[in-house]
Write a protein that binds this DNA or RNA. Structure first.
Lengths: 212, 212, 212, 212
DNA sequence: CATGAATGAGGTTTCATTCAT
DNA sequence: TATGAATGAAACCTCATTCAT
């Protein structure tokens, strides 16, 4: 059962020709656009295909069903963000805590903001059947990276409580989401970045004080 | 335009007979249940009516369409939480900042946790057409209350930056959401409460240091 | 079967009390109003009852179903017009043809125009199941009266061809309908009256010339 | 507003493949059939699709809603008749009045009788929301053609009164409708043709006498 | 490979009618 | 008798998906 549904969500085939790659890209883009302009409940495969400039049949050659289409872009985006966080964590190993946090949080926000339209669009489908599950798996990955990194901070005694990591991540993700859904102008994004750094820094510092 | 859509979301009529009040209540409950058991995309008016033990026709006597049904319970829940925050703010006027934050954050979490099932269920529909708008309006209300309260703190110089309030609220709401969507056991809820208090406290303290 | 459907269209009971008569009248009126304001396809029993200021239940105490309601007012109106034509025919017996036609046509138009709103409204339901049948029966009645009358004209030799009568009636009814559906101002109604008299007069005169 | 409703009534897309053209034709035909066999109030899109031998979905690929389906065939028929009248008017320019009327009236009746089933069926829906409006627009077209033609008659002094034209058209249309709704046998149709010519001829002659 | 016509289950919504109060 | 809550069949319409061309 699980196997089946897992497979059902995978893209049907990889584009081998150059032209096909363009098609797949066009469909992805169209999905975002439709999501933003029409909303999640009026996103239909036909509309997506239309916007992408291909026929429905073509869409179904690359994605076995509607969900797989949504999952593909959701996964892609989440992977991108996770990767950014992981990379930032790795680069920050051994640095002082405050610096760690500054860098990682900054990279997280930047990753989300590379394409605000995609981020915004995806909030609208993240609730879909299995969506939250995918989100959770992704967060897990980031949390592990964060946990590993913090352990290497020279100015922290003991290991961080796992829940605290989740807390911090939730705060980061939650605040970012809120700002995006409010239709953020660039200036606000910058503010978000600063304040989020501050918020996380003082939170982790407070925690280490308690632990001590 | 706004008028029309606003009206379309309002319940159709108030029950005048006692029997009718029971019916309306049953429909509300059933909506939550279906949302939890079947998910947002398999929530149909027929299913809701069935679960409520009434006919579809009856459902449509009280709600002009599916959206109005979802809105009604979303609005109810958001109002409840907003009211809790407002009350907490009022009660905390003039107290020291740390205490303020402790009380308000605690009340916020408690309000969300009164019925975790409803909270969880509503995350699944808050994305619906107009949902985010409603959510934003509600947050506005809470932010105003928070802003007003903080101004009365004896140990804070100057007024808080509006964006900081939004930040804090987003962190609160975001973290709570994450915990709930992860399927929180009661013990975690308690931890969430503590950590959220800590996180917000040190954030606002850090802010006032900066301001000074 | 025929018996059954015939009965199903009859009003359920005659109002015996004065209050009841008022109610029935109110329902009739409301039906017209709804027909005019909402159109035939949005005429619902609930809406009619509402407009009449009674509950649906009450409506169903006087009419066994929706059709009977519509038929009642359709029949009433048609009867009124038929009666007017018959009376006019009787009064014109023995008069010269031109005078006959002038009087009858005038009376017909007047009968239709007593309440233009009712006439207009009824065009919208005359198509209903069985409507055309009722209309035909009514026309039959008028045609017989016309035929009987024309036979008594001193300036006509031989009897009129039955089809010619139908022709004349159709022209009268059709032209009147057209004018009403175009939203006739009173001045047009007067013109209609004149021209219809002229049209019918010269038609019947032409016919008698041929016959001779 | 008008734009929206206008668009809502237009067919959704033109068939591009040969197969599709057949489908559209089948749907049109089926609509007439259902209208005749089941009546206007029992005409459902499902029934039409069934009779056409296609699925409902297919129907909705070509017509955005039920009304547009009905409008399409109503418009087609009305256009055909209007065109016939216009052509006849053009051909009769400059001929004597009696001949004009004979030819035009004949063409009108013939056009209506090409497919008596369609004509009959359409009387049943012409009342639909917007139906009368469409009918009026169509009549306007014919009236203009008639007016233009009569001006060219050598044996008529002055121009005809506009109302008289409407009168004549109404008489023509009304009488034809009556005969068709009575379930006309071919022999009656021939009679209608003759009598209508006579009726109109003597009417217009009478008018010119008055004018003179 | 691409197309787009066709499918039909299933969703939302209406409304004539009944019946307990 | 009057009310209006409840019913549920049936209408309209959408859209994910398939498949012949």
């Amino acid at each position: 059962m699980i196997h089946k549904s897992q497979r059902a969500l995978k893209p049907r085939k990889m584009p081998v020709q150059a032209r096909a790659a363009l098609t797949v890209e066009a469909i992805s883009e169209a999905t975002i656009q439709v999501l933003l302009s029409s909303g999640a409940d009026r996103l239909t495969t036909t509309r997506v295909a239309e916007r992408a400039g291909v026929s429905v049949g073509t869409l179904y050659q690359y994605y076995p069903n509607k969900q797989s289409l949504l999952f593909a872009i959701l996964e892609q985006q989440l992977d991108r963000v996770s990767a950014a966080v992981e990379a930032a964590c790795e680069q920050s190993c051994g640095k002082p805590l405050a610096e760690m946090v500054r860098y990682v949080v900054g990279q997280f926000v930047d990753a989300k903001m590379v394409r605000t339209d995609i981020s915004t669009a995806l909030y609208r489908i993240s609730v879909y059947l299995g969506g939250p599950e995918l989100v959770r798996r992704t967060e897990e990955r980031s949390r592990k990276a964060l946990e590993g990194m913090i352990k290497t901070a020279p100015d922290v005694a003991g290991k961080p409580e796992p829940f605290a990591i989740q807390m911090m991540y939730s705060a980061m993700a939650g605040a970012t989401r809120n700002v995006l859904e409010a239709g953020a102008p660039p200036v606000m994004v910058r503010k978000l970045r600063e304040h989020l750094v501050l918020l996380c820094q003082c939170y982790v510092r407070a925690l280490s004080n308690i632990t001590r």
